[in-house]
Amino acid sequence: MQYKLVINGKTLKGETTTKAVDAETAEKAFKQYANDNGVDGVWTYDDATKTFTVTE
Score class of each variant (00 low, 15 high):
residue 49 T to C: 04
residue 56 E to T: 05
residue 53 T to A: 05
residue 50 K to R: 14
residue 30 F to A: 02
residue 27 E to C: 06
residue 49 T to E: 07
residue 32 Q to E: 13
residue 43 W to L: 03
residue 52 F to S: 00
residue 23 A to Y: 13
residue 52 F to T: 00
residue 46 D to Q: 04
residue 46 D to E: 08
residue 39 V to K: 02
residue 29 A to M: 12
residue 14 G to P: 05
residue 18 T to W: 09
residue 50 K to D: 03
residue 46 D to W: 03
residue 56 E to Y: 07
residue 40 D to T: 13
residue 6 V to C: 05
residue 28 K to T: 09
residue 56 E to P: 07
residue 44 T to D: 11
residue 45 Y to S: 01
residue 47 D to R: 07
residue 3 Y to M: 01
residue 35 N to V: 15
residue 33 Y to M: 05
residue 4 K to L: 09
residue 32 Q to S: 08
residue 6 V to Q: 08
residue 14 G to Y: 15
residue 13 K to L: 09
residue 50 K to M: 11
residue 25 T to S: 13
residue 28 K to L: 11
residue 42 V to F: 11
residue 15 E to Y: 08
residue 1 M to G: 11
residue 52 F to L: 01
residue 26 A to M: 02
residue 23 A to E: 08
residue 26 A to T: 00
residue 53 T to V: 07
residue 25 T to F: 06
residue 17 T to V: 09
residue 48 A to Y: 08
residue 51 T to N: 02
residue 39 V to Q: 03
residue 19 K to L: 15
residue 24 E to H: 12
residue 36 D to W: 07
residue 48 A to E: 13
residue 55 T to L: 06
residue 28 K to G: 05
residue 17 T to K: 06
residue 45 Y to W: 04
residue 33 Y to T: 03
residue 43 W to A: 00
residue 34 A to C: 09
residue 40 D to M: 15
residue 26 A to Y: 01
residue 47 D to Q: 10
residue 6 V to Y: 07
residue 30 F to W: 02
residue 41 G to Q: 01
residue 3 Y to R: 00
residue 11 T to F: 15
residue 10 K to N: 13
residue 51 T to F: 02
residue 40 D to V: 13
residue 52 F to M: 02
residue 33 Y to S: 02
residue 32 Q to M: 11
residue 34 A to M: 08
residue 14 G to I: 15
residue 37 N to Q: 12
residue 29 A to G: 05
residue 41 G to W: 06
residue 35 N to F: 13
residue 47 D to C: 06
residue 5 L to P: 01
residue 8 N to M: 11
residue 48 A to L: 13
residue 6 V to E: 04
residue 48 A to W: 08
residue 22 D to P: 00
residue 44 T to K: 06
residue 14 G to N: 09
residue 45 Y to I: 02
residue 18 T to V: 14
residue 41 G to P: 01
residue 40 D to A: 14
residue 3 Y to F: 12
residue 21 V to T: 14
residue 37 N to Y: 13
residue 53 T to H: 06
residue 29 A to W: 15
residue 12 L to Q: 09
residue 30 F to K: 00
residue 29 A to V: 15
residue 32 Q to I: 10
residue 30 F to Q: 00
residue 19 K to D: 12
residue 53 T to M: 08
residue 35 N to M: 14
residue 53 T to F: 07
residue 25 T to P: 03
residue 32 Q to D: 10
residue 36 D to A: 08
residue 1 M to S: 13
residue 51 T to A: 04
residue 54 V to D: 00
residue 25 T to D: 10
residue 54 V to G: 00
residue 14 G to D: 13
residue 3 Y to C: 02
residue 3 Y to I: 02
residue 38 G to M: 08
residue 33 Y to E: 03
residue 13 K to W: 07
residue 42 V to T: 13
residue 48 A to I: 11
residue 52 F to P: 00
residue 10 K to D: 09
residue 26 A to N: 00
residue 39 V to F: 11
residue 20 A to C: 05
residue 19 K to M: 15
residue 48 A to N: 10
residue 38 G to Q: 09
residue 34 A to R: 01
residue 15 E to R: 05
residue 47 D to I: 09
residue 31 K to Q: 09
residue 14 G to M: 14
residue 38 G to D: 07
residue 25 T to W: 07
residue 19 K to C: 09
residue 28 K to D: 05
residue 36 D to R: 06
residue 12 L to C: 12
residue 6 V to L: 09
residue 11 T to H: 13
residue 12 L to K: 07
residue 15 E to M: 05
residue 50 K to L: 10
residue 5 L to I: 03
residue 9 G to H: 11
residue 12 L to T: 10
residue 10 K to S: 13
residue 51 T to H: 03
residue 42 V to S: 09
residue 52 F to N: 00
residue 9 G to M: 15
residue 53 T to E: 05
residue 24 E to M: 14
residue 34 A to F: 03
residue 2 Q to P: 10
residue 36 D to L: 10
residue 16 T to S: 10
residue 9 G to L: 15
residue 12 L to I: 14
residue 43 W to I: 03
residue 54 V to K: 01
residue 31 K to A: 05
residue 37 N to M: 09
residue 38 G to C: 07
residue 43 W to K: 00
residue 51 T to C: 05
residue 29 A to I: 15
residue 33 Y to W: 12
residue 48 A to C: 07
residue 33 Y to V: 05
residue 31 K to G: 03
